[in-house]
C-alpha cells in the first residue's frame, strides 16, 4: 500500500512537471505555430544563472544564495527576459516562415545557448543545492512518507494551471490571446496587436520555464549544459500526444507521459527498466497511430489537416 501511494504521488509529480513543460510549449505553438525546442535550454540557462559565471569545478552560488522569494523572482525574471529576447532577436524574423523552419531555428537557438554555457561555465556538471528543506521526506500517514518536493511540484502546477485558466478566461488580454490562438489573422483585423500577443506568450512560457528551473534543479541538485535536452523531449512528446495547440491537451499529455513512465518503472522487471524510455516512445507511437491529431482535438489542428 505504501508503495502504491508513493508511486501515485511520484507519477503525479512527474506528470505535473511534464504538463508544465508541455504548457510552455503549447502557449507558443497556439499563437505562433512555433514548436520551441529551445524551451528546455531556457530551463538550463535559468539553472546556470543561480551560480557565479566561471569554469571552476566547484560552483559558487550567486543568485542561488539569495532569500528564496528573491531567488524565485530573479530566476523567473531572467528566463522571461531570455524568452523575450529570443523572440525579438530570433523568432520575430522567421515568424512568417513555415512551422518546420521555425522549429529548426529553435534547435539552432538551443544549441547556441548550450554552447554559450559551455564557453562560460565549462562542460563539466556542477553540484548545486537550492531549497534543501524541500528534498526531505514528509510522513503522510503511518509508514507512508514521500518527498516534500513532489508535493510542492504538484501544488505549484495546479496553482499555475488555475492562474493561467483564470487569466485566459477572465481577463480581456487573456480573451484576446485565446482569440489570437484560434484565428490570428482575424484577431488582428479586430485590432488585437499581434506582436504584443506573441510577446505575452513568450513571457508566460518563459515564466513557466523559470519556475520549472527551480523545481528541476532542486530535484536533481546538479547543473549540466545539456540538462534541458532530455526533458524537452518529454515535453514535446507530451505536447504531441495531447494535441498540438490545445492547452488542455498539453496538460493531459503531460500527465499521460509522466504517469506512464513512472508506472512503467514500477512494473517493468528489473532487467527491462533501462528500456523504460523506449517503452514510453513505443506507447507514443501507438497513441499517434490511433489518434494522429493527439488526444485533445483543437479547431486550429482540424483546420490544418
Amino acid at each position: 500500500m505504501d508503495y502504491v501511494i508513493q508511486t501515485i504521488i511520484s507519477a503525479l509529480s512527474f506528470g505535473s512537471f511534464y504538463a508544465l513543460g508541455a504548457l510552455g510549449i503549447g502557449l507558443l505553438f497556439s499563437v505562433l505555430r512555433l514548436i520551441n525546442f529551445a524551451h528546455g535550454d531556457f530551463i538550463t540557462v535559468g539553472g546556470f544563472a543561480l551560480i557565479v559565471p566561471s569554469s571552476a569545478v566547484v560552483a559558487t552560488m550567486a543568485i542561488g544564495s539569495f532569500h528564496p522569494a528573491l531567488l524565485l523572482v530573479c530566476i523567473v525574471a531572467i528566463v522571461v527576459l531570455l524568452a523575450l529576447v529570443s523572440y525579438f532577436l530570433v523568432f520575430q524574423h522567421v515568424q512568417n516562415a513555415s512551422p518546420a523552419t521555425m522549429m529548426i531555428v529553435s534547435f539552432a537557438l538551443g544549441y547556441t545557448l548550450q554552447n554559450v554555457i559551455v564557453m562560460i561555465y565549462g562542460g563539466r556538471p556542477k553540484a548545486v543545492n537550492i531549497f534543501p528543506e524541500l528534498t526531505g521526506q514528509v510522513q503522510l500517514s503511518d509508514g507512508v512518507s514521500v518527498q516534500i518536493l513532489q508535493l510542492v511540484i504538484i501544488a505549484v502546477t495546479w496553482v499555475l494551471l488555475i492562474a493561467l485558466v483564470l487569466f485566459l478566461r477572465r481577463t480581456q488580454v487573456g480573451i484576446q490571446m485565446r482569440a489570437a490562438a484560434e484565428d490570428f489573422r482575424m484577431a488582428r483585423m479586430l485590432g488585437v496587436n499581434g506582436k504584443n500577443v506573441i510577446a505575452l506568450a513568450f513571457i508566460l512560457s518563459g515564466g513557466l520555464a523559470g519556475i520549472m528551473t527551480l523545481l528541476f534543479v532542486t530535484q536533481t541538485g546538479v547543473l549540466t549544459f545539456r540538462m534541458g535536452v532530455p526533458i524537452m523531449l518529454f515535453f514535446f512528446i507530451a505536447t504531441v500526444i495531447g494535441g498540438m495547440g490545445s492547452l488542455v491537451g498539453a496538460v493531459v499529455g503531460g500527465y499521460s507521459v509522466g504517469i506512464v513512465s513512472v508506472v512503467l518503472s514500477a512494473i517493468l522487471p528489473e532487467e527491462l527498466r533501462g528500456f523504460r524510455d523506449a517503452c514510453v516512445f513505443i506507447l507514443v507511437i501507438i497513441v499517434l497511430l490511433a489518434r494522429p491529431q493527439g488526444l485533445v482535438l483543437t479547431k486550429a489542428a482540424k483546420e490544418r489537416v
Partner: peptide, 12 residues
C-alpha cells in the same frame, strides 16, 4: 472565434 462566447466575440 468558436471557443469564445458570443459576448466575448462581440466585445473583442
Amino acid at each position: 472565434f468558436t471557443t469564445l462566447n458570443v459576448e466575448e466575440n462581440l466585445r473583442i
